[in-house]
Nucleic acid binder design. Sequence first.
RNA 1: GCCGACGUAGCUCAACGGUAGAGCGGGUGAUUUGUAAUCACCAGGUUGCCUGUUCGAAUCAGGUCGUCGGCUCCA
Length: 596
Amino acid sequence: MKFPVPMPDGSIKEFTFDEEEGKEIYRHSTAHLLAHAVKQIFPDVKLGIGPATEDGFFYDFLKETPFTQEDLVKIEEKMRELAKANIPIVRKEMRKEEARRLFEQRGETLKLELIDEIEGETVTVYEQGDFFDLCRGPHLANTSYINPEGFKLLSISSAYWKGEEGNPSLQRIKGTSFPTKEQLMDYLHFLEEAEKRDHRTLGRILELFSIEEEAGAGLVFWHPRGAIVRKLIEDFWKEEHIKRGYQLVYTPHIARADLWRISGHLEMYKENMYPPMQFEGSEYILKPMNCPFHILIYKSKQRSYRELPIKYAELGTVYRYERSGVLHGLLRVRGFTQDDAHIFCTPDGLKKEIEEVLELAHYMMGKFGFDELVHKLSTRPEKFAGTLEVWEMAEGILRTVLEERGIDYIVDEGGGVFYGPKIDISLKDSLGRLWQGPTIQVDFNLPQRFNITYIGADGKEHIAVMVHRAVLGSLERFMGTLIEHHAGAFPLWLAPIQVVVLPIAERHIDYANRVVERLREAGFRVELDARNETLNYRIREAQVLKIPYILVVGDRESANGTVAPRKRGGEILPAMKLEDFIINLTKERETDNISI
RNA sequence: GCCGACGUAGCUCAACGGUAGAGCGGGUGAUUUGUAAUCACCAGGUUGCCUGUUCGAAUCAGGUCGUCGGCUCCA
């Protein structure tokens, strides 16, 4: 389905919704339709901005009282009416003065602010019936190209004008829009699916973790079933790191304020740090990062270039003050454990280290079922530590490593942190959503601040290169990601309970116990459910808990030494000898993972 | 932190100025079950917390803690 779009040069270009640009234009025009409808219903509302977004659009309005859910229904109705009314959308280029008069007359004070910020003599204004908007465009030629059955308003929230905190709060209406009703329904279905996978809900149902009001916001309690998953992840992580030459270390949770002064955190990271505690004449601060501690271990003796690289790894628990409004389940908390490591190497050794971290990151993500990764390289920002030369050297290495391995990556020019360039990897989950994953950051700042040196082949002291890297990010956030990706149905090697054995009647309990015993011996996490409930009831509960295998045992099984396995998805396998089942299960566990 | 919405039994929700009710879950009993919820009975709440308005507050107001949707930030 094509729609014509009048372009700035006067030509008419045709777009389809499948093209990124076409989609954006279509949704941007839906945002205007929203604003048009709002202005008709609430003439006093002042217009903010209203762009297309990744999955829809929004428009911000300055309004005395917030919109209500009922307003949304009315607005949506009005939008349909306007779409059907076949209103031409006309692009007008005008001098700033003229535009100022137009918007002043219409009371659009926010638009006046925007006009002043635009460079040049002229601006573009879009006219749509009695609605005018300052906008670069382009837009659809007519409101009738917007399918009245293809859009939906989804939420009311707020946003600061221009995203700045001191500015007034605007009311943001968010929605989405598609050219067909089917596409809209598919999207709404996707939202429902996402909701079903919400790690906060699944975390409670599966008894993985909780966050307790009595203890405080953003502080995670790992319950036994979540703790076993965490342990399995930790064991796997440690094993893989040791294999690759990392050395495990453990460091304290607090340190003298002086240490944080040297590291620069007290200056640069203060708003995320908890206030100091005082005793015996010293100030101590809860650690927001592990790096200074690893540096202290490095610096505990003189280092030779022959020892490098030195790679210290730690599952280090840190505490960061996060503003109450940003906390979110496991994804944004105040205390969390980073799978942290710091690599100290020579400039010559940097490339190899980056290669190895990438390999490790890819390998580990694959084990957890993340096959699609998105790489981003962030380069030098305006304010930076170190010299131009070292930045260029390091950026060049990051780039080269990505390119040599044939990895597609996007570049975030100037998006690096002040202390060095970095590679961030996002994980695409089973619903196509992106999650923050591994990160590799070169640091030119701390080696200077702490004077991290080694003795080179020339017998002289050199400043070491330092790399911060995390594969999982934090165990908390990674667990949240993992839960949503698998919808709580963990791969066999990670499932808190791998097998549940259900005796059909009381007379089968003895045999069921023997099955449980045998599976335990084979190293599986297995439970017996011999409760006085119907078989169907117990099956249902095991299904709800997403247990990978249900073994039903009755007369036939006890007589033949077999089990009747039912897979998590509902598939019922033919009865098989218990020993054969164990062989299969072991195989599945091992293809998922190295060991348990 | 800011804007808005919300906080009632373990969970999901009802009652919206006259001192709380359902389903699921839990306990007990009956039933002994062949692949997603057997039946009955019982217990369970100072309606997040504090203060106020009122003859009377889950219901109204203020504060506080927390949750949700955003802004901003991030592991």
